[in-house]
């Protein structure tokens, strides 16, 4: 993310429980100011005159307490700290609980070209949502050449060199009822060093796919709204590569392979492609297996346990046989 302004914040398409319900009520000239940090400031201390360690590059959130204090200051005609607050290059002020700032405060904001925003949310709720939003905006991102699909609830990122059949594989998966998040370019975001969220690069161009021989297709129109999704956590990385007879592929399924995106390890499967191999079915199975693993069931390990148990009981039986022979 190179630059993020107040205007970008107002333009964000956030839905339902993420919605910030922000409106600009004054200081429109300040909408081009940049937000450079995901930190949020509650300006109680600065208003009381204490400006040390003042985080002047964060958004200033005025909750009920700050609003009451502003009223008190104005009633006492003590505007020094408010004026000083506006002398700092603060990105913007947000008034919560649907409250309006006083005309004096608005006039000061207009003078200094600082935007004042208003939200109907409670300050605690607003702070949480804003923090979450900004955290995502400032999260490290990476653009990847691949396809992101949701298969049985697992976000599967399919990568491989061009021409190996990523899009065709994804198309078959969608045909089987799975969902497309993005074809060709996937933007990955590292969310608080915890997990990776993948989405299309551009919401206007998302859910389109280029299939050699057919051209550009709109998947949402062709397969319906059930075939698409806006974003999804990446939980499995599938690498397609041309079949190499000399290479050793995983034959047991210990699942020790991992792929790293933005410093986060994602389980990976390497799938060799050759005519006659049904890649979508293999990916579906990999996704099912991944779900089983999340539930604590490791197919390969359980199988090995069964083999060990069987061998043990067989050797116990053999003991009997040996004993009988000697008697």
């Amino acid at each position: 993310m190179s630059e993020f302004t107040i205007l970008d914040l107002l333009d964000l398409d956030l839905k339902e429980h993420n919605h910030l319900s922000l409106v600009c009520i004054a200081g429109r000239t300040g909408l081009s100011r940049k937000i450079t940090t995901s930190k949020i400031s509650r300006p109680g201390l600065p208003l009381s005159g204490f400006f040390e360690e003042f985080s002047n590059n964060s958004i200033q959130v005025f909750g009920r307490g700050e609003q009451a204090y502003l009223q008190k200051l104005e009633a006492e005609h003590n505007l020094a700290s408010i004026e000083k607050l506006f002398k700092y290059d603060i990105p913007c002020c947000v008034f919560c609980d649907g409250a309006d700032p006083s005309p004096r405060f608005t006039a000061l904001a207009e003078e200094t070209g600082t935007a004042i925003l208003k939200t109907s949310l409670l300050s605690s709720d607003f702070s949480r949502r804003l923090y979450q939003t900004l955290d995502e905006v400032f999260a490290p991102t990476q653009t990847i050449h691949g396809v992101l699909v949701e298969v049985y609830g697992i976000g599967v990122l399919i990568t491989g060199e061009s021409g190996v059949g990523k899009s065709e594989t994804a198309l078959e998966l969608i045909e089987r009822g799975h969902r497309l998040i993005s074809d060709d370019t996937v933007r990955l975001r590292n969310i608080s060093d915890n997990f990776i969220i993948g989405m299309g690069e551009n919401p206007l161009l998302a859910h389109h796919m280029e299939i050699r021989g057919l051209g550009i297709l709109n998947l949402a129109n062709l397969f319906g709204v059930g075939a698409i999704r806006d974003r999804k956590q990446v939980q499995l990385s599938v690498k397609l590569e041309p079949w190499d007879a000399k290479k050793n592929y995983d034959r047991v399924g210990e699942g020790s392979l991992h792929d790293h995106f933005l410093g986060i390890a994602i389980p990976m499967v390497l799938i060799p492609v050759k005519p006659g191999r049904n890649i979508p079915v293999i990916i579906e199975t990999a996704a099912r297996n991944e779900r089983l693993k999340k539930l604590g069931y490791y197919s390969a390990k359980e199988f090995d346990q069964s083999v060990l148990k069987w061998l043990e009981s067989e050797s116990a039986r053999n003991m009997y046989n040996i004993n009988e022979e000697t008697h």
Binding site: S2, S162, T185, N202
Partner: peptide
């Protein structure tokens, strides 16, 4: 800018905007 895409992919080039 911050975007780097594969130049052999049509959708990639278009998403550059």
């Amino acid at each position: 800018g911050t975007m780097k895409i594969n130049g052999k992919s049509i959708m990639g080039i278009i998403t550059l905007g």
